[in-house]
Amino acid sequence: MRRAVLTYLALSLAAVVILAPYLMSVQTSVKTPRQFAQQPPLAPPRPPTGENYAELTVGGHTLIPPLVITVQVVLVVVLGQLVCSVLAAYAFARLDFPGRDAIFWVYLATLMVPAVAVLVPRFVLLSEAGLVNTFWGIVLPSMFGSPYAIFLLRQFFRAVPQELLDAARIDGAGHPRVLRHVMLPLSRPVLATLLIITAVTHWNDFLWPLVVTSGARWEVLTVAVAGLQSQYQGNWTLVMAATTLATMPLLVLFTIFQKHIVKSITITGMK
């Protein structure tokens, strides 16, 4: 009993530490700029105001266009990555071809190269291709799979018992059919995990869209929110409302896939 109390105490403490920043940003988002300027940050909003949210949806700082762009980017990247990564992982896990392991390890080694290091070369490459400030400039570099996704899936595919695949082969299934009817149904949890990780990563991606696009046309959410702050104007109430709004879709996504994620963590031991 005492142990349970202690456990819950520790857990609630951790929850407070993790949740406090979000709660702060939410409560700042319903304050007027004037109240924010005059009172300490922890003072409760009195009275709560919706003006920041109104400004961000129907006002002059509307986030709807960047939101649409961001949804498109995430959709294309997630679909592209899942399809390409599944195919590649299946090949690396289950097909025999010369140089398979060498290619895999070389590809995996690119995980170790920090993204910033390839930022400028990648930018120059795309600018030579005339893709700067286009939609495809944002998505192309990441839509053909990522080493992380392929590694995760390959490990999972390797753990699938060979007997299942052999049974399918005996029944006359080729590789596409094995993948479609045996591998994928078994891999749902890991695919769900991958989906959410990829979606979150690209939803929050800031540096690449910032560098590759200019202006309102292809502005994604993260860049639009950063643009609310200038050298001397913090616009904190507006920024907090914007970050709260920007986090919302991720929370929804998490709620939908929550069961799968928890399951996949227990299966793979991955986080």
């Binding site: 960047p66 679909l79 939609f135 309102a216 643009g227 200038s230």
Partner: peptide, 30 residues
């Protein structure tokens, strides 16, 4: 449907129809 519309921006356009577009960049949204 969403995929088909990917790559369409609803935020402004730069179809200048014969006009010259000059870009101007600054850091202060106000």
């Amino acid at each position: 449907a969403l995929l088909l519309t990917a790559g369409c921006s609803i935020a402004g356009n730069d179809d200048a129809d014969g006009k010259t577009t000059v870009t101007f960049r600054l850091w202060d949204e106000q």
